[in-house]
Design a protein around this nucleic acid. Structure first.
Lengths: 249, 249
DNA sequence: TGCGCAACTGTAATATCTTACAGTTATGGG
DNA sequence: CCCATAACTGTAAGATATTACAGTTGCGCA
């Protein structure tokens, strides 16, 4: 649906988005261009698995935002659930067709409607450093009215959600956001990689041709950088943050 | 560019794709519909970090496939490099504009051209279970001739690449592909999660209200299921496979 | 030249994990 | 009723990791 020049315009906007406000403006412009009334962007950064760093850029009505927060709906929101499990876009209406839907998630959808979030779409984004993002757009009109509009907007929005997310990633890299993303030295990286493969200090030392003491030394330094209190946690953090990453082959 | 009914047709095709052949047919049909001559889909499954399970569905000329393999180009292919680092689509031509490009990656692009892969686009896909996929389409025509076509096809192809990837994910789940994806019991999951957070057996036992011996027991069972030889490796595997996953909040 | 830093190495005490032994209890399906 | 499985617990020996001590070497930069 969107013309290519429109998309290029948004891509350009994402590449120059300055600060959280810049991303906020970008999302708002996106929503407006494709006929939506509200948006929300949320992302988790795996600084910790249990308590990740979270960034939310909300274009939702304040009343709904407060209610959502107060009721702890994040834990049962079916759109969020979908985005943690799948990489496909979710058209909210399709949740109603699901016979397996529980009562609680259903309540969230019902109440959202009362606050003006009647129909919408949620896009999940997985970054190259283990981040999980969700970008949702919603309309005050009914699903019947918006279905075909949403359908045709999805390819553009799905693509642009990646650019929105990378714009946020750039804020993190630049240090505009307080989410630490440590860098490992070459040796720390190597040692941690082999540790993640189940090798002992002694084995890592053999593999790298160094003394066992040195392997331990590098692993300790890596753990310190990652704010980890044990080798297990260091490995978990490094993997979840994509510092130790899967190669294609 | 693609009409919505065309996209819906491909989505439907992806949902019913049967076996690797079905996915192959889907990719071929996609490439053809958007004016490309070749495609290739590759995905890594984090069964192991060092030696992941790999699936390649190739629609490339056999001669190029052999040459690529023989020269070990996977390790230097700039398109692959881009896809491991970014979630944005890559239009091959844009690599030429990059002043930082090394000699080797440049060679890969040059030689690809001689084998009929003149211009193209690569799309990266990150699954919810830690998989990394790359879907590339290429044309025998020059970048000048195909630029605007590729530009307008990207939103559709980016969206559909997610469906292609999920179709492959379904093959894995159904057991059609020999990539094991173990399931953990509730307790194993809990124990492993806390272990990944750096807790000791004793601490995990306190948290869960069980004896230290039982926490150790569950962690050992989890490690066995994950084919891990140590707790570190078990944690690394569980995280990389998304069995211990980041929550939004 | 001095400073910071990556990389390297050693010893020793203590904490934690791993393995192998040997069980109990409860639940659901054939 | 039997069997498989999750969940649970205990002891003990040996392997591995963690912490704290105390260094050397080489490199790039101000």
């Amino acid at each position: 649906m969107g013309s290519r020049t429109q998309i290029d315009g948004f891509i350009d906007m994402s590449l120059h988005a300055d600060g959280v406000e810049g991303v906020q403006r970008l999302c708002a412009a996106l929503g407006e261009a494709y006929g939506f009334d509200h948006f929300i962007y949320g992302a988790s950064f795996p600084t910790s698995l249990i308590k990740p760093a979270v960034l939310v850029i909300s274009g939702h009505p304040e009343a709904w935002r407060d209610h959502y927060q107060a009721c702890g709906y994040l834990a049962v929101d079916p759109a969020v659930q979908h985005c943690t499990r799948s990489i496909r876009p979710l058209i909210w209406q399709d949740l109603m067709l699901d016979p397996k839907i529980d009562e609680k998630p259903f309540t969230v959808m019902q109440e959202a409607r009362e606050f003006g979030l009647v129909s919408g779409v949620s896009l999940s984004i997985r970054g190259s450093r283990g981040e999980l993002g969700v970008l949702s757009f919603s309309s005050e009109r009914t699903a019947q009215q918006t279905r075909s509009e949403i359908d045709s907007a999805i390819p553009d929005l799905y693509l642009l959600s990646a650019y929105v997310h990378e714009a946020v990633g750039r804020l993190v890299t630049q240090g505009s956001l307080p989410f630490n993303r440590p860098e490992l030295t070459a040796r720390e990286h190597e040692c941690l990689l082999w540790a993640a493969e189940g090798k002992t200090s002694w084995e890592i030392a053999r593999i790298l041709g160094i003394s066992e003491r040195t392997a331990i030394f590098h692993l300790q330094n890596a753990a310190r950088r990652l704010n980890a209190s044990s080798r297990q946690q260091a490995v978990a953090r490094a993997v979840s943050q994509g510092l130790i990453s899967l190669q294609l082959g």
